[in-house]
Deep mutational scan, measured.
Amino acid sequence: MAAGGDHGSPDSYRSPLASRYASPEMCFVFSDRYKFRTWRQLWLWLAEAEQTLGLPITDEQIQEMKSNLENIDFKMAAEEEKRLRHDVMAHVHTFGHCCPKAAGIIHLGATSCYVGDNTDLIILRNALDLLLPKLARVISRLADFAKERASLPTLGFTHFQPAQLTTVGKRCCLWIQDLCMDLQNLKRVRDDLRFRGVKGTTGTQASFLQLFEGDDHKVEQLDKMVTEKAGFKRAFIITGQTYTRKVDIEVLSVLASLGASVHKICTDIRLLANLKEMEEPFEKQQIGSSAMPYKRNPMRSERCCSLARHLMTLVMDPLQTASVQWFERTLDDSANRRICLAEAFLTADTILNTLQNISEGLVVYPKVIERRIRQELPFMATENIIMAMVKAGGSRQDCHEKIRVLSQQAASVVKQEGGDNDLIERIQVDAYFSPIHSQLDHLLDPSSFTGRASQQVQRFLEEEVYPLLKPYESVMKVKAELCL
């Protein structure tokens, strides 16, 4: 049975990233139509530049190519590739079939990587351009969430054990800070992308030097003109047959890092959902379990974690691919890159769409948070109580021993009897502590235990987050809708 299948058929496997999760716009960027249309555009740009620099290419040939950029006979191309065992030459023939007058000058002087690699770089750039505003929107939604809850005390956790208090907004800023680093890295790697350009079979530009009869300047002009037509500021000066596969490492490393950030955020949300302090959106008709109707599973956060793990592992592909590119190139890269580049971007696209949807509907339960604080705060307040007693004339050592005994009794009630923490009640009825009984409410005010959390939130948002989001103001209103 021949390899390949009808990918629109229910009898043929289709990647869930495309069929179930990723956005239509990201799927289109990695589609065959987008790819092969870009090949034709690159052939047109090459012909236009070659004509401008004096090669015998007519206006009629150029116009014929322009008129057929979208006229792609995919069936013919597939048949040609089956016959020739070469995808680029299959599309040269297919393009030439609908451009008979231009057929002889299509791909003039070029090698397969002229269309293959340059198209990949265009796709990487455009895919990054799709991700950047999506990530900015996630940051914006979380920034709104953090600002609104900047002063809401909550129990902090280290080692997932109760620690000092923080605020809900401050905790959210930990998430935002990681995503801001990801946004900066995505922008950097996007701006650092260079075009492969017009380089020939081993990167020496020998074929173009021959076409222009040894004119170095025209060869350099050709490279520059096509690079500018493709919208790049610069091209690699040095290439082998391909652009260095280190570029793929750079791009997928940034995406993998984004995956790590999203995994951490969504894990926190899942843990908070278990504590009943916070939940992701839950639709009115949504079913959490087929057997347990009360369940409210954090399905979206779980999906993000599941896909983020996949995204983090994909960076190993370009690392290994770059390491086995012998001399000017081997074909070890080809099949692998067809999979890992598309999957990385479709996965990143999915987790950003999902995280935006989550961040637009996060639900906080202040009463649950308050109750958990009441359970733990008495123990945390013991040092403040000791200091207040010393100020009232008591002995630190005597007070410490009193607190120690009462704390152990209260802990026994919590752990052995399943009761509430009654340390404060014990202190309130103990005559030894009568000098500070009137101060206990103040000493137990949760806001006095959150330090500068709310001020940190305000400063972080104003100095770091809002300036970073400013270039994306025009796209901030787009909502994230999930079908599944």
Score class of each variant (00 low, 15 high):
K233S: 11
E81S: 02
I403M: 11
F433W: 05
Q184R: 11
I358T: 14
L46E: 05
H310T: 09
P56T: 13
L193E: 06
Q375T: 04
K276T: 07
T52N: 11
A411D: 04
M389H: 07
G361L: 09
E481Y: 11
F232Y: 08
F36N: 07
S447N: 13
P446R: 04
L314M: 14
H86L: 00
D430Y: 06
Q205K: 02
M476L: 15
L55N: 06
R245A: 00
Q375K: 04
P471M: 15
V475Q: 14
C173N: 00
D422R: 06
G4C: 15
Q416S: 11
Q439L: 10
L482C: 09
I62P: 02
A90E: 01
E148P: 06
D268A: 09
E70S: 13
A127V: 06
T202Q: 10
R372H: 14
I72H: 08
D398H: 10
R171I: 00
D268Y: 03
L108A: 15
D430E: 14
T204R: 00
R188M: 07
D422T: 13
E283T: 14
F74E: 14
K295I: 01
T239I: 10
G259Y: 02
C304K: 05
E279D: 04
R459V: 10
E148A: 11
T350P: 07
Q325I: 12
I403A: 05
P435T: 07
K224T: 11
V405K: 14
T227G: 10
L209W: 12
V262T: 14
L443V: 10
A78R: 13
S151A: 14
E425V: 08
L444T: 07
H93R: 14
Q439W: 06
Q205Y: 00
L53Y: 06
R188C: 06
E250F: 08
E48G: 05
C304A: 15
A22D: 06
L440G: 06
C99G: 06
G197H: 03
A47F: 01
G169V: 01
Q286R: 02
G393H: 07
A260F: 04
R137G: 15
E425G: 11
V363I: 14
L440P: 01
P378V: 09
L461S: 04
Q164V: 08
K199D: 01
L44C: 13
Q286T: 03
L482A: 14
Q63T: 12
D420A: 04
F449Y: 15
L44K: 06
N118E: 00
T119M: 05
L165V: 10
F36M: 08
Q409L: 10
L406F: 09
H86C: 00
V226H: 03
L42F: 02
I139A: 09
I176W: 02
D445I: 10
I385V: 12
K147W: 12
M181Y: 11
A77R: 02
L468K: 07
G214P: 06
V368S: 05
M387C: 11
Q397A: 08
Q161C: 05
E70C: 09
Q63F: 14
R141S: 15
L193A: 11
R190I: 09
T167C: 01
V262P: 01
E343A: 09
M278Y: 07
F449S: 04
N71G: 11
L193Y: 07
M476A: 15
H86W: 00
K218D: 06
L121S: 09
K276V: 05
A410Q: 02
V168H: 06
P24D: 14
G200K: 00
I105R: 12
K147Q: 14
M380Y: 01
I106H: 01
G156S: 14
S290A: 05
F345G: 07
D32L: 14
S261F: 00
D420I: 05
I373A: 08
R194N: 07
D191R: 08
D117T: 00
V390E: 04
R33K: 13
L132V: 14
